[in-house]
Design a protein around this nucleic acid. Sequence first.
DNA 1: TTGACAACTTAGGACTCCTAACTTAGATCA
DNA 2: TGATCTAAGTTAGGAGTCCTAAGTTGTCAA
Lengths: 219, 219
Amino acid sequence: MTGTRPEFFDENSEPISARIAMGLHKIGLAMKQQAWQQANEAGLSATQGQILAALVANGPLSGKELSERLGVTLPTISDSVRVLVEKALVTRSADPRHPRASLLAPTPKGASLGARARSWPEFMADAVADLAPDEQRAFFAGIVKMIRMLQEQGLIPINGMCVTCKHFRPRVRPGPSPHHCAFVDAPLSSDQLRLDCPEHELAAETARRELWEQFMRRG
Amino acid sequence: MTGTRPEFFDENSEPISARIAMGLHKIGLAMKQQAWQQANEAGLSATQGQILAALVANGPLSGKELSERLGVTLPTISDSVRVLVEKALVTRSADPRHPRASLLAPTPKGASLGARARSWPEFMADAVADLAPDEQRAFFAGIVKMIRMLQEQGLIPINGMCVTCKHFRPRVRPGPSPHHCAFVDAPLSSDQLRLDCPEHELAAETARRELWEQFMRRG
DNA sequence: TTGACAACTTAGGACTCCTAACTTAGATCA
DNA sequence: TGATCTAAGTTAGGAGTCCTAAGTTGTCAA
């Protein structure tokens, strides 16, 4: 079984894109387990934690909005919200926008748990900390592009990414901060692109594609 | 709410490592949903698919080994395996290594499903395909390093990574393929590093750290 | 031969997630 | 003024995921 086989790796290894996919799969595994464990330690289920985190990050939301953001169906949300209300971590109030909808907001206790839940993925940040700054930037750039592709394919539900937002103006000036956010009227660099801006407003389909192409244009 | 606020992004954005974590979180979400959906289409559960994929990729395994590889407890595996045996996708046979253990091997039908299950994460590969080759390499390098860190922290169960394998010889020569695999006696480049080599044998703790430091050494 | 060990298996419970079938407040329109 | 439509939730039911705790059972060591 052993011997000089320089062709071994080319024959047996998959293309780098498949290797990336596998790596992300493994990272996803760690993420799932951590979320589960950290939720349990906080006396919540994973979904309950995610709901609280979303409410803290984005302000009051309806059940429908939550289901879109978390990528699960309404009944699943409905179930978890019932428990959160029973635990006095969330309150309901009427939503002026829709007749049957109710706006969900965290109570003070819920908000504090939600804030903690938001930091659950940060154990990842520790694992990233050892990368050199330029490696981190390259890594982040890859992630932004991947997420955009996944969203294009309809595999990621909602995302508050700058590159799909109607307020985003890519490459409007030279220098290190070429982009601009029209909402806050501020320049921003590629490093500063947000993935979950609460002010995100989805641009129309054609405008979105346009934004993306401008953003990707090199030079 | 609108106005010239150049400080907006620095004030409201998190550090890049946290942004990376959030991005990976979103990607993980897509991964979970895809796995679920693709498993359903194949008439399997997600876990069953992963078990079949592992058996195809690594050859016959015991329940214990499966539970380590998939990062779930033995009862969970036991449950899924029972269903797979009922479906005639997996067979048991005695394991010569352990008295009470049984080796699980896929039937032909199970093997074909397992081969398909192995390609489930590949939808990610499509999303990566738009990245330039150098971006892909940088991305992959980041992933390898992250996985290594996560494993260091005990957050990823088993991994057949070259950088933790006793057969791995990092940086033994100059040029584009500086590393060497002593098992197949072949040079390999950083791009060719494997994440799930079936021949992986875990090096002892101290040796592992040594390997890693050699691998990380720049220049 | 008695006990420890290791690898399961069983039992039981909480949570996730889905589809399908209601329920209901308001809007639309005849 | 109703009849119908729409959209947001809720309820019911079922498969699957996970866990902990408590057996089972071959083998090996004392």
